[in-house]
Design a protein around this nucleic acid. Structure first.
Lengths: 171, 171
DNA sequence: ACCGTCATGTAATCGGTTACATGATTCT
DNA sequence: AGAATCATGTAACCGATTACATGACGGT
């Protein structure tokens, strides 16, 4: 019950997903992540095993081991976990910038704008198409914020395409 | 001369900045970073000491120690370093998505959209104003890509503001 | 019964972050 | 001279990434 661990975004992802599922195994989390979150936040399957363990040791999750079959671990959030999550959810974020955009970094470090844009633009367009496809096949009665987040993701991708178009046009 | 280290974005930042400066000490790099790059890529001063050392050991930088005064280390890029940098600069990036956006993550994990937007929007607007101020005071004959990158940064920030406006309006 | 894939983890590594510590300059 | 700040690094920690390894299940 070392309750004083540092909670990272990964922690809140686990807390949030377990909370939403009611109860979950790491593998189930993995599938949920792959189904959407993975599109705008990298998270590796190993973390979905180590992080719940960490959170359980700190008292934010309950860990229960199955007795039969695969004897896998099932997690539920504790009261403390729910509180920590709610507190985080209701606090505005400190970092207000878009994260790291590798292609912009290349530009900043001296890439030839024209050449880079010519490579980047089509790739960026393909990615946008992917996102829009994802958005299209979202079941209409999909509840909650998922729809909104996907929409925002599409908007950001459109903006990226626009950015590279500008660079390309700048001759 | 262990030439087989992994080169991370941080590596290329160091290579690129040293290349641009011709020769530099970690502290000089720190100042250059603070002057611009820091706005869209986090990098800690400790890395500006450890990373050049790593790169020097791998043969991508030359390390020369001052004899007098502070006896600090001055770095220049080697031919190998220049090649590695150029190769990276001319390769299109694999990651085509905007990086991690913490506020979007909160939304995805169940934040109340309305409430979050009301907090996020003004903060996001302030950040945008900062960027625009930075852009305005960019000396007009500032060479190369710096101007472009700052411009793209502003565009992305504007997009973020638009995103949160949409969320807010969605009632 | 066997094989391939799905499922479930652990271990090792490594870069990024936080903390600490000390040596030069500059200012009063 | 002493204080404050600037400059220069090292050390410890820790989370994220990569690799490895094994067990269960479904199909043939």
């Amino acid at each position: 019950m070392e309750s004083d661990i540092r909670l990272t975004p990964t922690s809140y992802i686990v807390l949030g997903l377990v909370e939403a599922a009611g109860e979950a195994t790491p593998y189930e989390l993995k599938k949920v992540v792959a189904a959407g979150l993975a599109n705008f936040w990298t998270i590796h399957h190993a973390q979905l095993y180590t992080e719940p363990k960490r959170l359980a040791e700190a008292g934010f999750l309950n860990e229960r081991r199955e007795t039969g079959g695969r004897r896998r671990k099932r997690y539920t959030v504790t009261e403390a976990g729910r509180e920590a999550l709610q507190e985080w959810l209701s606090t505005p974020t400190k970092t207000l910038t878009v994260g790291r955009i590798p292609s912009f970094l290349k530009l900043a470090l001296g890439s030839d704008p024209k050449a880079l844009a010519e490579n980047q633009l089509p790739a960026q367009r393909r990615k946008l198409a992917e996102y829009e496809a994802l958005q299209a096949q979202l079941s209409p009665e999909m509840q909650g914020n998922v729809r909104i987040v996907v929409e925002l993701g599409v908007e950001m991708q459109q903006e990226l395409v626009r950015c590279w178009k500008h660079v390309a046009e700048r001759a």
